[in-house]
């Protein structure tokens, strides 16, 4: 029973790991890996929560063809990404870049941490002062 379910699980994993194309785009495994990696980073704009590696929409097929041709033409990954951004905007990237427009978003965690730290320090100082006053009486304020 356990073994059967294990086999079933592995079979399902195998299904998800397989590329969507009927056959590999490249014979060279290095190029094929680059092709698959780029596809996994590009959003299919018709079916927005899928990458073009996952989607069988015609646009995704066309974009995969474009990626394949550009790799075959010797373009770098960065050039291919730039090609897509020029046409479809930053939204096409699954891993967003830092730009002037979304700087605040990238900085938000640090900013919130900083605000939290400032609030914390102020609260602690005030409490400390209050307890000092309670303990020592009016003299504490003169030092």
């Amino acid at each position: 029973m356990l073994r059967a379910s294990l086999v079933a699980t592995l079979l399902m994993l195998g299904a998800t790991a397989h590329a969507i194309d009927a056959q590999d785009a490249f014979d060279d495994p290095v190029l094929q890996e680059r092709y698959e990696n780029i596809n996994r980073e590009l959003r299919c704009l018709v079916c927005q929560n899928q990458t073009i590696a996952d989607s069988n929409a015609t646009l995704a097929q066309d974009l995969r063809r474009e990626v394949r041709d550009m790799i075959a033409a010797g373009q770098t990954d960065a050039q291919i990404r730039e090609f897509m951004i020029e046409r479809y905007g930053d939204f096409v990237l699954y891993r967003p870049r830092m730009t002037a427009g979304n700087l605040l978003l990238w900085a938000a965690p640090a900013l919130l941490l900083l605000i939290g730290a400032i609030v914390l320090v102020r609260v602690v100082r005030r409490r400390a002062q209050e307890t000092d006053l309670d303990a020592d009486g009016p003299e504490a304020g003169q030092s």
């Binding site: 018709v46 015609t58 646009l59 066309d62 974009l63 474009e66 046409r87 479809y88 905007g89």
Partner: peptide
């Protein structure tokens, strides 16, 4: 027919 010009124009739907 190939959809390449559409890609150049950023057409998605």
């Amino acid at each position: 027919r190939e959809g390449r010009t559409a890609i150049d124009w950023g057409v998605y739907g």
